[in-house]
């Protein structure tokens, strides 16, 4: 057996177990970070787009 890593139970030698834990954390957080990033970008873009015409409209209204 050349590789002793066990991706299911976390068995195998210590370096493999450490890698398994680190990679599990990365893979768990990565999709949340990416989708959160996209959501934040869309919200920021929408707010910026909403704010832009508001200024123009207000400028044209009599006080």
């Amino acid at each position: 057996m050349l590789t002793l890593a066990c991706a299911v139970c976390g068995g195998g030698p210590d370096p493999a177990r450490g890698s398994y834990i680190v990679m599990s954390i990365i893979i768990s957080l990565l999709p949340l970070a990416m989708l959160g990033g996209i959501l934040a970008w869309v919200i920021i873009s929408a707010r910026a787009a909403e704010a832009a015409p508001q200024k123009t409209d207000d400028g044209g209204l009599p006080s």
Binding site: T3, L4, A5, A7, G12, P13, P15, A16, G18, S19, Y20, V22, M23, S24, I26, I27
Partner: peptide, 9 residues
């Protein structure tokens, strides 16, 4: 991830 774990093991 699979590569990293295999290499470490």
């Amino acid at each position: 991830s699979a590569f990293t774990i295999s290499k470490a093991g």
